[in-house]
Simulated assay, not measured.
Amino acid sequence: MEHLLNAQVKQLQISGIRQFFNMVGDYEDVVSLTIGQPDFQTPERVKSAAITSIEENKTAYTMNAGIPELRQAIAEDVKKYGLHYDADSEIIVTVGASEAIDISLRTILSPGDEVLLPSPVYPGYEPLIKMAGASPVHVDIAPYDFVLTKDAIESHITDRTKAVIMPYPSNPTGVSPSFGQLEEIARFMQNKEMFVIADEIYSELVYKNPHTSLASFLGLKDKVVVINGVSKSFSMTGFRIGYVLAPDWMRQHMLKVHQYNVSCASSVSQHAALEALKNNQTEIERMRATYEKRRAFVLEKLKDIGLSFVEPDGAFYVFIQFPSAKSTFETAVGLVEKSGIALVPGSAFSEGGEGYMRLSYAYDLPTLEKGLERLRDYVEHHL
């Protein structure tokens, strides 16, 4: 009976990140620096808000778009990025940023459309594009210092291009476009009949320049869909609360897709997210300061080991170049087997990641130090 299943779904593969993470679990005494999972506990007041919502029986369906108080808190929060969205008509609370991306793509795309993706890129976008009947077009951004620039976009546009996905700070590189580069993209997009999906889930985790949302540029609000959420910034990955910001005329169609997909996000998680956004901004600062220290530690160690890398200015990843005659996946397996250190092979992030490894520094300093010493051992004795 399997031959009767959806051909697009059958062709999909489990994320290379998860494939490798699961494989590593079969080995003993391995330091894994693979997963982008914050190692902080969810703030106590946020957990208490979730518990209180259960005790107060706030466990029924909510409005499809999310509870009004949370949408208002989101509208207030994003003003720090120069964004102005109406809580009633331009915001949808979703089941994580993943669902926000899904409903955005399913609303925008038709069969035969093309979507431009930076390469290397987080592997979660391509399957959603394909399931919407469209085609992903990978744009090699290595020649542009791993930034999806105006020139990189322009050189890949065809008459079938419907949208561009811009995730920044990037997973896997941690790199963001500069203000000037975003300004160039904004000017270029003014006269284009295409959309940009700006996945800004790591917007709170920036270490050099303040985050700038592409939607904040004049005249772009009708062309940019903003994706964000509380997973990374408040260490709430399991609560599954994201959100999408879009103009009213687009949002009303997205809401239909969202409604038939999930009805609404978890009521309990919504109340927890409300508490996070209203009363826990200092927790973001504490976590960000810790990540910044870890970042400095990791970069210094990598320089000392003699490895080149793409210098990150956000998120909690470093993309490390591995000069080897072997494939990146084979090298990653060698790291585990010979030195007991697990990094994600760059090929998990499309062909543009070949020759690189992603290291996550969402781990405490002792774990990072132990892992980097094992990485040194591999470089000195096996590379």
Rank of each mutant, 00 (worst) to 15 (best):
H382W: 09
T94F: 03
P68H: 05
G112D: 00
R251Q: 01
T331F: 13
T161M: 09
P38R: 01
I305W: 08
I284C: 12
L205Y: 07
N209G: 10
L375M: 13
V226T: 14
G219I: 11
G16L: 10
I157M: 03
L343G: 00
Y260A: 09
A215Q: 06
T42W: 15
P38T: 00
T149M: 08
T331G: 08
L299I: 04
Y317H: 08
L335W: 10
Q181T: 12
K10H: 06
M23A: 07
A73D: 05
I305C: 04
P345Q: 02
V164T: 06
F316R: 12
T149D: 03
G334S: 13
A198C: 11
D304Q: 13
F21I: 13
Q281N: 08
L274Q: 03
F188K: 09
Y291T: 07
P111G: 01
S339F: 14
H382A: 03
L368F: 08
A246C: 11
V196K: 11
V226K: 11
V164N: 03
G314M: 11
L255M: 10
A132K: 02
V268I: 15
D377Y: 08
E300M: 06
S267A: 15
K221A: 05
L299M: 05
V226W: 14
I227W: 13
Q270N: 14
P366A: 06
I341M: 02
K58V: 00
D304F: 13
M166G: 03
R294G: 07
G133T: 04
Q321A: 01
F297K: 15
P210E: 02
F146W: 12
R251C: 01
H211S: 05
S327Q: 02
I153T: 01
V298I: 11
I185W: 08
V262I: 01
D26Q: 13
D140C: 08
K192Y: 00
A75K: 04
G36C: 11
S216F: 15
V333E: 09
F40M: 08
A296C: 00
N64T: 12
K80Y: 10
M23H: 13
E373H: 11
K208P: 01
L33S: 00
A49G: 03
I141D: 02
E126P: 02
N279R: 14
E311V: 01
A50Y: 11
M254S: 00
R376D: 00
P127A: 03
I17L: 09
R251V: 03
M189W: 10
L375T: 08
I320G: 02
K370R: 04
E300T: 12
Y317Q: 07
S48W: 15
T173E: 06
G340I: 10
G352S: 05
A289N: 10
P366H: 12
S231C: 04
P172K: 08
T107C: 04
L214P: 02
D77V: 11
A100M: 10
E354C: 03
R160A: 05
V78R: 02
Y81G: 01
R374I: 10
G242T: 07
P127R: 11
I51D: 06
E2I: 03
A362Y: 09
K130D: 04
F322E: 12
A73S: 08
F316H: 12
S327M: 04
Q321E: 00
S89N: 06
I157L: 03
S48E: 11
